[in-house]
Amino acid sequence: MIPRVHRVRERIQEQGDSVTLVIEPTDGEWKPFESGQFNMLWAFGVGEVPISISGDPSEPGRVYHTIHDVGAATHALCSLTPGEELGVRGPFGRPWDVNAAKGRDVVLLAGGIGLAPLRPVVYEMLARRAEFGHIALLVGARTPGDLLFPDELKAWRERGDIQVETTVDRYELGWSGHVGVVTTLMPLVAGDMAQTMGFVCGPEIMMRFGARSLMDRGVSEDDIQVSLERNMQCAVEQCGHCQFGEFFVCSDGPVFRWGRVAPMVGVREL
């Protein structure tokens, strides 16, 4: 329950009021993590919030977090500059099951800040490219100015071994890509999807539509992984806040198979 002190090495201003912090433990004891896990980040004197790890799980020593500045704690975190310190507890949570996608086609569906928890999956899959079939990364953002990691998206697209499609909800001058919610990108992925594994991360409403659109294309509900968000205070099954039916989202999740949670997501206020 006690945060470990980390120091900011680098602060990367992202688009759309977001910041990527690259941090290192001051005691030098870096902890390995898996794609989809999160840390509790503590801004001294302000508060502690759950933030996914957005870096490459095979790169030891540093921890990457991409934080959307939306409130008191995230604002304080986004305001940290290199050399400043923060507290970290974690990593916590059940990761994406990347291995379950071995030998299969993959659709990664990301909405807004939801691309941050999926970025480690992209790193992992590209590093082990031969193990997977077709990989499609479909990314939605509110406006072109909110799109996360545009340079990286471009570099991935140029590799040619991953299909990268982007869309925005609201057109702005200079945008030449798609307009519409992220599910409108689904027809761009060719072929039969019965053997596809889907990974979906974004606002809950987007995940519902995302899962629906994957299932419309033949993906089984148990082959769709989603990452849920709830209020989290302890991250260790103790504070109760993250409960969702019988689950503690902090530990039984945040990644769940859609088939397991879909009936509950449909119940209001669960």
Binding site: P203, E204, E229, R230, N231, G240
Partner: peptide, 22 residues
């Protein structure tokens, strides 16, 4: 904390259990 509090299930995007029946 109490699960009867409105803040209990609040997230940046909104509160899960907005009503008392919930």
């Amino acid at each position: 904390a109490s699960c009867f509090g409105l803040d209990y299930s609040s997230m940046h995007g909104g509160t899960i259990r907005t009503t008392i029946p919930g």
